[in-house]
Write a protein that binds this DNA or RNA. Structure first.
Lengths: 351, 351
DNA sequence: ATGAAAGCGCTAACAA
DNA sequence: TTGTTAGCGCTTTCAT
């Protein structure tokens, strides 16, 4: 007769009553926080089970102000890199018994502001801020409320904020050396959006990589994109008209490379026979293209772990300056790179 | 001197003290729940502003058991369809002042179970269950706790659960008619994973669409995939060997079409000159391929709105049977479809 | 029109 | 070892 199924949420008091103990004891059994005699503990565990008890972490959050939740603000959920990161980040959070609060700004300042507010309301214990192209001032409320922030690729750690940088120089160097081995000397570059910090970082890294590989940097072969397919497409069309004719292109990210590939194919230029192409990020869909995209793969799992590490560091003491950590990528050789062709200016026109 | 910035969280009591009123009054001003004299209200609003008050919805959640949060369980975050849906869903939730709790199962039953538990703990007000390939029994705890569920494509509404179905028959019919207009008569199909319900639904819908268009269904030209690129790729390679030689292919979703396209290109078969290809979902990246993918577009916004509607219906009364709603797609003509070629068996071999 | 007080579920001091 | 109790922030009767 006692086998009635708990349909609504039973709480600790219910369980306590059921087990003939106090709710404090129930709490202790659940958290293992203090010695409880085995006989009592067993009774409690049984009651827990019978009543199908689901703890209510919200009460704990209210009590302590910390929510065991980390927020993530991504700039563009339609770039597969971010979902892939989120997947890993969520996994890591589950391991450390935390929750994920997601916000996507779609590059809108308004949405960023409202996202920050939601993070504040939900009392997140920290925020990973990937929307690096937006105005930083919008996230100041987080700092005022002493919420740790980890930025991605801002290259600037301050009091209360850490940074996880992607090592573009290392990544592009790997790509450039790979291309140099294949005989390429005129390598083009399609960057991010003009005028934002991470774009400049990537462009600088590209130039430095060329230098380290003893290859010439041709300013005419470098164009801006927008981190999306459209930018890669348009920039590629422009670069095809530039001199000297390029035989390979590096991009700011994989989506840009998608666009570039499409542009090349539109012009009837074969990849990799005529032009080699290298992306950056290592999104899975890169392997779905034809040819599959050679790219610098950033392990989403590494990123996630690194972010959590940086957050934990700050959580221990928000007052201090955060860490500056770096994540390295690895070259993923797939089909879009091959030996350099002797492209002429005419071929560059795509005729 | 009073301009000290609120660094930590101020609460209603602080605000009340600051404004010389009681916290009840502050609450009333914030919620507009009762008449408050304008002079007092103004004072409160000022205090709210000066102290930079951020409400704590967690307290409300604790008090009422409802969290203003909807959970979404997706099967695979690396399929762009889901992030695109989430983006819209989140937008809709923001509009109705709700939060989103995300869980991705990656088709793992274990993850589904832990996701359900998290939803329960967080006291979500409802769940959108998109992980339709997994065992339904894992979500029963949600029903026991009277949490409304909206399934996608299960075609089965029960007490406490609604369903949003995608109208595959309509979608495939649009695709088939488009292809028939282009002169195609031998249309192949790459479905979802063998043995799960939504795969069968899609296959049936395809057959019915052919029938409605007075075209022949060739069982040899229908293969299973796995909703991912790999499945599309492999199935396409298999279908190319099948007789009669197909001139067009429909797929269960866009990722499958990605794989199919890659397989065709690997074999040197031109799209759409030799074979036309139509996807399903309308993910943005479909337009990044070359040729851009013709597809049946399901509006993520529609889906999101429909899901919320179905959830709201159940929230009003969990005891009743949920609604069965349908979402229609539209034909997005892009580059992967063209007039039918006179393919021979030899061409079908890809030589 | 406004205030006082109780209570949501949980945990940690403090008592026994 | 176990129980009692206060309090996290909010809303909402019930008084005033």
């Amino acid at each position: 007769m006692k086998r009635t199924r708990a349909h609504s949420s039973s709480n600790m008091r219910t369980v306590a009553l059921h087990a003939g103990v106090s709710s404090a004891t129930v709490s202790r059994v659940i958290n293992g926080s203090a010695r409880v005699s085995e006989s009592v503990a067993e009774r409690v565990r049984q009651a827990l089970d019978e009543l199908n008890f689901i703890p209510n972490p919200i009460a704990t959050t209210l009590k302590y102000g910390r929510s065991k939740t980390y927020g993530v603000i991504v700039p563009d959920l339609t770039n597969p890199f971010y979902p892939e990161f989120l997947l890993q980040f969520e996994d890591v959070l589950v391991e450390i018994d935390h929750e994920l609060l997601l916000a996507s700004t779609q590059s809108s300042q308004t949405k960023l502001i409202s996202s920050v507010r939601r993070m504040l309301m939900r009392r997140v214990d920290g925020v990973v801020l990937m929307a690096s192209e937006l105005d930083t001032r919008s996230v100041e409320p987080l700092l005022e409320h002493r919420i740790p922030i980890v930025t991605i690729d801002r290259r600037c750690a301050q009091e209360g904020t850490g940074d996880v940088a992607i090592d573009f120089e290392d990544g592009y160097l790997k790509a450039v050396l790979h291309l140099r081995d294949l005989g390429h000397t005129r390598i083009g570059f399609i960057g991010g959006s003009e005028g934002i910090v991470t774009s400049q970082i990537r462009l600088d890294a590209f130039q430095r990589a060329l230098q380290l590989a003893s290859l010439t940097y041709y300013p005419r072969l470098a164009a801006y994109g927008n981190y999306r397919v459209s930018g890669g497409n348009e920039a590629m069309l422009a670069l095809l008209k530039a001199m000297p004719p390029l035989t390979a292109v590096l991009t700011a990210n994989d989506l840009t490379a998608f666009g570039a590939l499409q542009a090349l194919q539109m012009r009837g230029i074969r990849v990799p026979e005529d032009v080699s192409l290298v992306g950056f990020d290592g999104i899975r869909l890169g392997s779905a293209l034809y040819p599959p995209l050679t790219t610098i793969e950033i392990s989403a799992r590494d990123m996630a772990l690194t972010c959590v590490r940086a957050l934990d560091y700050l959580k221990a003491d928000v007052a201090r300056r955060g860490q500056s950590l770096t994540v390295r990528g690895s070259l993923l050789k797939r089909g879009s790179t091959g030996v350099a062709a002797a492209r002429t200016g005419m071929a560059a026109q795509g005729h």
